[in-house]
Design a protein around this nucleic acid. Structure first.
Lengths: 233, 233
DNA sequence: GATGATTTGTACGTATGTATA
DNA sequence: ATATACATACGTACAAATCAT
């Protein structure tokens, strides 16, 4: 039998409960696929065939097409007319450029955060930093990675510039498939934390230029870590 | 020169002639609508009804929907589920943030251009600068505006960082509907050129930091010009 | 607040373009 | 080189949501 009329559990009525599902299928697909790319469950270069994706999610090709269109515009996938979309696979040159921009964007965020963060935001940043210190001591790369994301996000938001925060998050998402191996070694973990310390100190003191420099250095080191693991291409 | 020229009869077959039309209707629509927004022919806040747009271009709703989706992802239009898309109308606060980011992005471009530009690129930048000087003397705001776009684009490309160039161009496009009144006064024209001079001098000398500072100052002044003309909102 | 009109969201069929034998 | 296979591009029909009255 065809899979039409999905029945989808008798609940068609409006449910205010539940984890805030997105209103349209396109949007839901976009979020799920983006997450799969960012989390690395879909590797760069993987083709996204409309029919295959549609079957996988039990929807028609239309919302799939629209989701892919938006993912392409946001840079997570690449499309060419009359050919299947692919999970984005930037050249090494382009990746270098993206890392360079990432360092500058994060530096700008840190500089603005040093000036604009509220007292509560500064205390929160300090707390995150201390948590990360604990995780270094415990040697937990997995959780370090998670809290590290929050640490950086806190600085983006601390800039009090929504547009800056958006493009920085977008760039981070596009780079995320290529920095997976970052915290494999404990040495890198502890070095990262030492660099964070310089960033936090500068921000808490309100020293804009120092915060920028510290963050720029931190991100550049991250890039070098990537280049070592990725090898030539 | 081709003498045949069959005067497009019912020509549905492949026509290699013509001004390189884009491959798909969606893409063509996206480019045309984006241009209308950037050029100011579609004002911020204008609704983009799918059927109306479809009729205007003589196509079905499908490619219109896809074009609008991509424009939304690039920030030129805003969409909300089950409601018509609108030409983007950012709050004044958000606009300030976007101008702030623009200044930083252009500063980064200028700094990298100072280091990375080739000899040919430097000569081309100098030539553009001289042309702009001519246009100031002639008092031609219209053409100044046009060449000014090329001047800034030349610096973006001079960074030799494609990703940086892309997000800078995208931000400029999103801001363009809000800096229309920039060169209304001759005083502004001549001031702009004086600022350019500092930028060009620093770039030609390869002085990264000076180029960044000069460009940052230039863009900030542009913002202030905007704020004066736009009024409170 | 309910109802009809309008507009968006999704499904599906067919045309068209691309790659491969 | 022509033909064939296959995926996307577009159009159309209908369902669902929003809005205007």
């Amino acid at each position: 039998m065809s899979t039409t009329t999905v029945t989808d559990s008798a609940d068609k009525t409006r449910r205010k409960t539940g984890p805030r599902k997105s209103a349209t299928r396109s949007e839901e697909l976009r979020l799920v696929i983006a997450d799969e790319i960012v989390q690395g469950r879909l590797s760069p270069g993987t083709p996204l065939e409309e029919l295959e994706v549609a079957r996988r999610f039990g929807v028609s090709r239309t919302p799939v097409r629209e989701a892919i269109r938006e993912l392409a515009a946001s840079g997570l996938v690449e499309t060419r007319p009359h050919r299947s979309a692919l999970v984005a696979l930037p050249s090494l040159d382009r990746l270098r450029g993206m890392f360079e921009v990432m360092a500058e964007l994060e530096a700008i965020c840190a500089g603005l955060a040093a000036v604009n963060m509220t007292g509560a935001e500064r205390r929160n940043l300090e707390a995150l930093h201390e948590t990360l210190g604990e995780l270094v001591r415990q040697g937990d790369p997995q959780r370090y990675h998670e809290v590290n994301e929050n640490f950086h996000s806190a600085i983006y938001h601390g800039s009090h510039n929504d547009y800056l925060t958006e493009i920085t998050l977008a760039t981070r998402a596009r780079l995320s498939p290529f920095r997976r191996a970052q915290f494999r070694t404990l040495g890198r973990l502890s070095l990262s934390h030492a660099e964070h310390d310089r960033v936090v100190t500068a921000i808490l003191r309100g020293e804009k230029t120092a915060a920028e420099a510290a963050m720029r250095g931190h991100i550049t080191v991250v890039e070098e870590t990537y280049e070592r693991y990725s090898g030539a291409r």
